Each structure stands twice: as C-alpha cells, then as structure tokens.
Simulated assay, not measured.
Amino acid sequence: MFWLMISILLLQRVSELFLANRNENTVKKLGAVEYGRKHYPFLVSMHGLFFLCFMLEVNLLERTLSGWWGILLPFICLVQLIRYWAIFSLGFYWNTKIFVIPDAELCSKGPYKWSRHPNYIVVALEFILLPLLYNAYVTAFMFTVLNACMMRIRIQEEEKALQLNRN
C-alpha cells in the first residue's frame, strides 16, 4: 500500500507541475509578472526531499502503517480534495510559482473564501499526516519545521507581490 500511495502522490505532483507550466504560459500572455524566483528552487527541492526522506525513513527504519490509519487516511483524502478545490477555484491562475497579473482581482471563491493560502495549509497538513500514516516521525517533524520556514518566506513574498499590484 505504501508504494501505491507514493506512486499516486508523485504522479499527482508531476501532473501539477505540467499544469503549472501550462498556466504559466497562459498568465504570461495576460501580462503576469513573476515574483519569488530566488526561493522557488528551494521550495521545489524541499518537496522532492520530503518524498525522498519519507521513503527512506519508512524503508530503512522499517516503519509500518500506523494503528491510527483509519483516522489518518480519511483526513489525507480530505486534504487532497481541498488541494483540488483550491486548484480548480483558481483555474488557469493556479501555479506553483508566484505570478501576479496587473489589476486582477483576488480570488474569493472556493476555499479562498476562508483562507488566502489554502494550498499552503494543505501542504502543511500533508507534511504531517502522510508521515504519521507510517509512523515516520522524523520526516513529519523535520519537514513541518522546514515548511514553516519556507512558508514564512513564501507568504511574505506573495503578499509583497500582491501589495505592489494594488499600488
């Protein structure tokens, strides 16, 4: 079950990168400006390292499925639904990079009614819930801390970009 889950999640991430690339081309035609280029390679690396560390911890330390899997798995599925709700709510504006189209309205539908950054919440929950599903506590702790640091940088950069767009 572990390898099936990892395969699905990796396929999901690769598909999202293709979608982001397609959306990037679309918004650039609308005059979008990219922000946060300096931290983006670190963000991508962090996500790749998450999966690598998760797989290594589960296999090398022989982690097994948590006794709490019946609770954790439905939450993981719910988090995935929220991820796609956020992606579909933004449509072609969704991206893994920060793009701002001059004078565009902020999205206020879907999960964006309640949070300015629902996808960041999703990632934070994934970095906790996925490793906990397999008792991979080192990965859960390490990437929760790394993600918190990255999100501090990322959200500041995104808010700065949006502020510049309003002026």
Rank of each mutant, 00 (worst) to 15 (best):
H39E: 06
I71T: 12
P74N: 04
L4F: 14
Y137H: 13
L73D: 00
N95K: 04
Y134S: 04
R37F: 09
Y35R: 03
I6V: 15
K97S: 15
N135L: 08
L129W: 03
L4Y: 09
R37M: 11
S115I: 06
V138P: 04
I101C: 01
S115C: 13
A148Q: 13
L52M: 10
R154K: 12
P41D: 06
W68A: 12
L73Y: 03
W69K: 12
F92W: 12
L9P: 01
I98E: 00
S89Y: 04
R154L: 00
V145L: 12
F2V: 04
A148C: 09
M142S: 13
P131Y: 01
L43T: 09
A86L: 03
N167A: 12
N23E: 06
L78S: 05
I8H: 07
D103G: 10
I98H: 05
K29V: 08
V33E: 11
R13G: 04
N95S: 14
K109R: 12
L78A: 12
G36R: 02
W68D: 10
V27Y: 02
T144C: 12
Y120E: 03
Q163F: 07
L162A: 08
G36N: 04
E62Q: 14
Q163E: 14
L19I: 13
L4G: 09
V58C: 04
Q12H: 12
V33R: 11
A161L: 05
E126C: 10
L130C: 01
T144W: 09
V44G: 00
N23M: 08
E159P: 02
L17A: 13
V79K: 01
M5S: 13
S7G: 14
E24S: 14
G31S: 04
T64Q: 14
F141C: 15
W94Y: 05
C107S: 11
A86F: 02
E34D: 06
V27W: 00
M5W: 14
N147G: 08
L73S: 08
R83C: 05
N135H: 07
L164N: 08
N59P: 04
F143L: 01
